[in-house]
Design a protein around this nucleic acid. Structure first.
Length: 501
RNA sequence: CGGGGAGUGGCGCAGUCGGUAGCGCGCCUGCUUUGGGGGCAGGAGGCCGGGGGUUCAAGUCCCCCCUCCCCGACCA
């Protein structure tokens, strides 16, 4: 089975790891379900998704069709995701750089398959400075072409390799049907581009990115279980020799491509003339990779972890891990709440105080719940009088009464478990909706509610056409044990089939 | 591009037979000690998508146009 049951979420840092996990001191009660007004996921998943995006104040539509305004709460999540990815990208040796938004149209045309893949969704600037441009300028749908045109200048010798560059940027692909975060005309992403001396090295690097950057961030930081595998010919990136992918199952059983890493072979090197002299003075074309993940991951976070009460965030990505709520004013209540926040800060926890007195307690509770803050601490006059606080876990929707003196220890202990529990929940959901079948017909049936694992030889390119009729596709190919198959390995592969976003 | 639906305060909607444009939420002010979307009182906010026509009178009827949404097609 491809779904890892092992717990790979991010461990708390040393100073937060704390001592023994303190058992709940008081009674644990479940919250009732009547406090939100979201459309239940089971009733209408797409509608639920839209409502969560709106009510959690993540994003809204921009004035131009398909554009997106990412609001502070949503952008803060993106920044945390970005930081986790960036750290891992740099750990593989890549450096950040920036290339222009505008690309000469002629560049796109250089690689036949590449231009064919992108031309339908290009935004082209025909006028500038009030004049018709001699050569139209394309707004980057990806930066393969510009970056490689510079790689050609920068790479002369084997000593210049490997060249490992990453860029954080926005890209534009003119989409007809858009959904916030999942598919928008303009989106934010990271695109890495590398050049290597050998094919093996390039492949090794592409796979390293897949595992050490993408899979690691998704599983350990975002708490999202993913399947890794190879794309079929039909699904691979336009211009690539081979595409590797991370796929995840959303809360409605559909698949979402989370991140891809491509082996470009020498396709772009030949077109752009990326050549180097090797140790023996012979001129060779470089072997390349490119890889990216986008703000779409925020959509995945919503659809994998969200419930009927809103967003549920893994602590590592939550703009605030804890909100301390002053239930209502009273002698010393605000001071007590401030002290808890301060103590959490010294423990390295991102905590926030909500002492608003002009908004009712119920309203504030629901707001933070919608926004997915993992842990809430509630302190009111009655609590203070009895030296206690109420701890609310967003992902379980439970309330526990704990002694005020030990509340921060309880909070850190609780936080340390959230990501693992979210990951486990998502993994068991995905496992329950993944079925072993033998043929196209079986895949068709399994694809209704989730994924099918089918022998690839029972599908093949012809089977892919048949599946497409039911809007199903092969998400990726794996070895039978769920691990990555070697590039040359064509026999005994398993196709993961599902409906994709 | 094909099929369907909708354009009315910020958001969601109602508006009958053509007769002074309404409701809920939100917003503003004041009062209320706020434990899961509190209560009361007062208030602001409209080119009814655009153009033309019929009529004493059009949100409403007729014609044209525009935009958006949904389904399909398309699509790393």
């Amino acid at each position: 089975m491809g779904w890892s049951g092992e717990k790979r979420w991010e461990r708390p840092s040393e100073d937060r790891r704390g001592r023994a996990v303190v058992e709940w001191a008081g009674n644990v009660t479940a919250l009732s379900g009547a406090s939100t007004t979201l459309t239940p996921r089971a009733t209408d998943f797409p509608r639920w998704y839209q409502e969560v995006v709106a009510r959690a104040e993540l994003a809204e539509n921009g004035p131009v069709r398909g554009t997106m305004v990412i609001r502070p709460w949503g952008y803060a999540i993106w920044e945390r995701l970005q930081a986790a990815l960036d750290e891992r990208i740099k750990a593989t040796g890549a450096q950040n750089a920036y290339f222009p938004l505008f690309i000469p149209e002629s560049y796109l045309r250089l690689e036949a398959e590449h231009v064919e893949g992108f031309s339908p969704e290009l935004a082209v600037v025909t006028h500038g400075g009030g004049r018709l441009l001699e050569e139209p300028v394309v707004i980057r749908p990806t930066s393969e072409t510009v970056i490689n045109s510079f790689f050609a200048k920068w790479v002369q010798s084997y000593r210049d390799l490997p060249l490992l560059v990453n860029q954080w940027a926005n890209v534009v692909r003119w989409e007809l049907r858009t959904r916030l975060f999942l598919r928008t005309t303009e989106f934010l992403w990271q695109e890495g581009h590398t050049a290597h001396a050998t094919e093996e090295e390039a492949r090794h690097y592409a796979l390293r990115i897949l595992r050490e950057v993408y899979q690691s961030t998704l599983e350990e930081v975002a708490a999202i279980p993913v399947l890794i595998g190879r794309k079929t010919e039909r699904e691979r990136f336009a211009g690539a020799v081979r595409t590797w992918t991370c796929e995840a199952m959303m809360g409605d059983g559909k698949a979402l491509q989370m991140g891809t890493s491509h082996e470009l072979g020498q396709n772009f090197a030949r077109v752009f003339g990326i050549q180097f002299s090797d140790e023996s003075g012979e001129l060779r074309f470089a072997w390349q990779t490119s890889w990216g993940v986008s703000s779409r991951l925020i959509g995945a976070l919503i659809m994998v972890h969200g419930d009927d009460f809103g967003l549920r965030l893994p602590p590592a990505l939550a703009p605030a891990e804890v909100v301390v709520l002053v239930v209502r004013d009273g002698e010393g209540v605000v001071e007590a709440a401030e002290a808890v926040v301060a103590e959490l800060h010294t423990r390295g926890v991102r905590a926030r105080l909500d002492r608003r007195s002009d908004v009712s307690f119920g309203r504030r509770s629901v707001d933070w719940e919608l926004k997915g803050v993992p842990v809430r601490v509630e302190i009111g006059p009655r609590d203070l009088a009895q030296g206690r606080a109420v701890l609310v876990l967003r992902h379980r929707r439970t309330k526990t009464t704990v002694p005020l003196a030990g509340v921060t220890t309880e909070v850190t202990a609780a936080l340390a478990r959230v990501a693992g529990e979210l990951h486990a929940e998502a993994a068991s959901f995905a496992r329950a909706r993944t079925h072993e079948v033998d043929d196209v017909e079986g895949a068709r049936q399994a694809g209704v509610e989730g994924f099918a694992r089918v022998p690839w030889r029972a599908i093949g390119p012809k089977g892919e056409d048949q599946l497409a009729a039911d809007s199903l596709s092969v998400r990726c190919l794996q070895a039978t044990d769920g691990r990555l198959a070697d590039p040359g390995e064509e026999e005994d592969l398993v196709a993961i089939v599902g409906r994709a976003y």
